[in-house]
């Protein structure tokens, strides 16, 4: 598998080199050689890139207010030390001009930051679909104790332990939790978002390059919290189709019983693999599920008993045998009614 970003980089190498140089040097030192991109300072998608830019912008602007303190305090301490010769004015306690300065400068800085904040918060709103000429890939994410299930509703498969995404195509996530509050996070691609039981949140991300990125849960949810990690493998379109086909061929069927006995049980991905009898499972590799119940995500959100696995293998098998043809399939056959997903509980305040 080619994980090096260069291989799928489009256009001139200059922006990539620049981004590496501009990236924070210790970070580059420590992560440059690693195959897994772990931070937004080494961004792999447009959202994370914008976040990094905004991060440094805020740092720079705030420095206008912070630096005078850090530079001048030692100077004042020295110049006005006890026993020094500088003028001493024990009753001097106000100056109009200084008052105007020390209110004015922070006000201007905060005003500029506020304007940018307003624009960026809207532009990078995780609920806002990304602009692209390609249709977004739908992924539904379910948090369990202590693993993530990734459902590909249009493809009729699901995975655990590894999230496989196509490069250069917007991804539209819908998230929920089958248990307590958790937070879904792929730093190299973009921001985190909470997943809550009986509620649906949304996130839109996109990867610019193929590669392997770290994904994790950020909200403590018990003893296995630190194991709730996954690998994001971004691949090109052909490999993605291979992956789907592979899942259909080799996936474990997921039904209500398996859901209850494996997924709902506390334990990390490796525990789940063990429970499924996958003896050769390696961390970071995907566990593939197919077929899956058609209303799996909705059923989890509503805590309603969903149908058992769809045993209508015709289109899947076709796809498995002809991965290229699969792409051309009309989406209606696999896609459940698209945007009408459970919104009975609004997550906005």
């Amino acid at each position: 598998m080619s994980e090096q970003p260069q291989t799928s980089r489009r256009g001139s190498p200059l922006p990539w080199v620049l981004s590496r140089i501009l990236g924070w040097s210790p970070v580059t030192l420590l992560t440059g050689c690693s195959a897994t991109h772990i931070t937004f300072l080494d961004p792999q998608g447009p959202i994370a890139q914008a976040q990094r830019q905004h991060f440094w912008f805020v740092v720079a602007m705030t420095m206008i207010v912070v630096l005078p303190v850090i530079i001048q305090t030692p100077w004042i301490l020295w110049r006005y030390r006890y026993g020094g010769k500088a003028p001493y004015r024990p009753h001097w306690d106000m100056s109009r001009w200084l008052d105007v300065m020390m209110w004015g400068v922070p006000v201007i800085v905060v005003a500029i930051l506020a304007v940018v904040l307003w624009q960026q918060t809207h532009r990078l709103d995780p609920y806002r679909p990304l602009d692209s000429d390609k249709a977004p890939l739908q992924v539904q994410v379910v948090g369990f104790d202590w693993k993530w299930l990734f459902i590909y509703p249009e493809q009729g498969i699901a995975t655990m332990g590894q999230l496989v995404l196509p490069a250069d195509r917007p991804i539209s996530f819908q998230l929920t939790s089958a248990t307590v509050l958790q937070t879904f996070f792929i730093p190299a691609l973009g921001g985190q978002i909470d997943a809550m039981n009986r509620m649906v949140t949304k996130l839109h991300l996109q990867a610019n390059h193929t590669g392997r990125f770290a994904g994790k849960n950020m909200q403590y949810n018990g003893g296995g919290f630190h194991h709730q990690r996954f690998t994001v493998r971004v691949v090109d379109d052909r490999q993605f189709d291979d992956f789907i086909a592979h899942a259909h061929r080799q996936g474990q069927p997921l039904d209500r019983q398996r859901y209850e006995e494996v997924l709902v049980q506390q334990g990390d991905t490796a525990d789940a693999a063990r429970a499924l009898g996958l003896t050769s499972y390696q961390r970071g590799e995907p566990i593939r599920f197919a077929p899956i119940p058609r209303d799996l995500f909705r059923g989890i959100v509503d805590d309603a008993p969903f149908e058992s696995a769809v045993h209508n293998p015709a289109p899947h098998q076709q796809a498995a045998m002809h991965p290229v043809a699969y792409q051309a399939l009309p989406p209606k056959q696999q896609t459940p009614p698209k945007p009408t997903l459970p919104q009975d509980k609004e997550t906005s305040q």
């Binding site: 905004h54 805020v58 705030t62 918060t121 532009r123 995780p126 921001g191 950020m218």
Partner: peptide
């Protein structure tokens, strides 16, 4: 930095 939502999405928690 943390007060800036778009950046907070990266460093929260």
């Amino acid at each position: 930095i943390l007060a800036t939502p778009s950046v907070d999405y990266q460093v929260h928690n």
